[in-house]
Every structure is written in C-alpha cells, then in structure tokens.
Computed example of a mutant assay.
Amino acid sequence: MIDARTNHNPDKARELIEAAILSCNPPTQIELAARMGITRQHLFHMSRGSRVMAYEFQVMLEGIIAE
C-alpha cells in the first residue's frame, strides 16, 4: 500500500492536471473533471493552488496519466 504521508505532494497539482488533460479525449478541463467526478471549477482551483489537492485526487490524476 502507498503511504500518503510520504507520497502526497499537493505542490504537483498544476503539473499533474496539465499532464492528465493531455491524456483526455478531447483534451479539456471539462473532460478531465468529468472523468474525476468533480466540477471544472474545483479542478481549476486545484491547478491554481487556491484549493489543496487531496491525496485521492493525486492518485486519480496519476492513474489517468498512466492510461
């Protein structure tokens, strides 16, 4: 099991979101937000740093990038 205490890095939110958007078809924030089950606004705020990226979202983004 991955330990969130050592692997969680909220500072990587913008980088992960940008990479995950490129993995979507079509490559948009709207498509990525739909795949993650969140609003586009929530995704936007995470990418800008006004909301902290939860560990679960980091795992989701890394999974989408790995697809």
Results as ranks from 00 to 15, higher is better:
F57M: 15
T39F: 02
I17C: 08
P27I: 03
I64N: 02
A19H: 10
V59N: 01
L32Q: 08
F44E: 02
P26A: 09
N25V: 11
H42L: 09
Y55H: 13
E56T: 13
N7Q: 13
I38R: 05
G63W: 13
S47W: 00
M46R: 07
G63D: 15
N7K: 13
P26V: 08
M1P: 02
F44W: 12
I65Q: 13
Q41F: 09
R48M: 12
T28D: 08
E18D: 11
L32K: 05
D11R: 11
V59S: 06
R51P: 01
R48S: 14
F44V: 02
A20K: 02
M36C: 10
N7C: 11
H8R: 05
M53V: 10
I2Q: 10
S50Q: 12
R48I: 09
M46W: 01
N25S: 14
P26F: 04
A4E: 11
R48K: 15
A33M: 07
L32I: 06
R48W: 03
L22V: 06
I17N: 01
Q29W: 04
S23N: 11
I17H: 01
A54N: 10
A4S: 14
D11I: 08
H8C: 13
E15Q: 13
Q29I: 02
P26M: 07
V52G: 04
T28V: 01
Q41A: 14
L61D: 13
A19V: 04
H8S: 13
S23V: 02
M1R: 07
M53Q: 09
T39I: 06
P10S: 11
T39L: 02
C24A: 12
M1T: 10
L22N: 12
A20Y: 04
I30G: 02
Q58W: 07
I17G: 01
R35V: 00
I2T: 09
L16S: 08
F57V: 14
P10M: 09
V52Q: 14
A13Q: 06
P27A: 15
N25A: 09
N25F: 05
R5L: 12
T6D: 04
A20E: 05
H8V: 00
S23L: 02
S47H: 02
R14G: 03
R40L: 00
M53D: 02
Q29E: 13
A20V: 08
G49D: 06
L16M: 03
E15K: 15
C24E: 14
T6L: 10
M46F: 03
G37F: 07
P27W: 06
L61Q: 14
